[in-house]
Amino acid sequence: MMTPISEDKVLNAGTKVRIRSIMPPGHVRAPSYLRGKSGVIERAIAPFPNPEQLAYGLPAKNQMLYRVRFSAAEIWGKAAEKPDDVIEAEVYAHWIDELDTVDAT
């Protein structure tokens, strides 16, 4: 079960998250190879204007920017060179779902 994070909540380092797997056309700032993948928050950086609005010259709302850490195994499966190598990327809050720590489903 996943919980979309509310706007004023800041996720702490270590929180388990999943990147949304939607694939809209146009300028999006979550790399496609990370969509649908699970990782942990490495750190909350700061709020920045939403680049997906800035890209079209629109007024941009601040979105919290996170660094999210993924294992190579999570992203590439058996194709990973070494499963516990790490990939870290910056992802905006509106691309992140918090994974419930107690997953009853």
Partner: peptide, 15 residues
């Protein structure tokens, strides 16, 4: 060496 962990940083946004 295999014992060294590689951390790839994808510079996707403002940092």
């Amino acid at each position: 060496p295999q014992s060294t962990q590689i951390r790839v940083h994808d510079s996707t946004a403002d940092m």
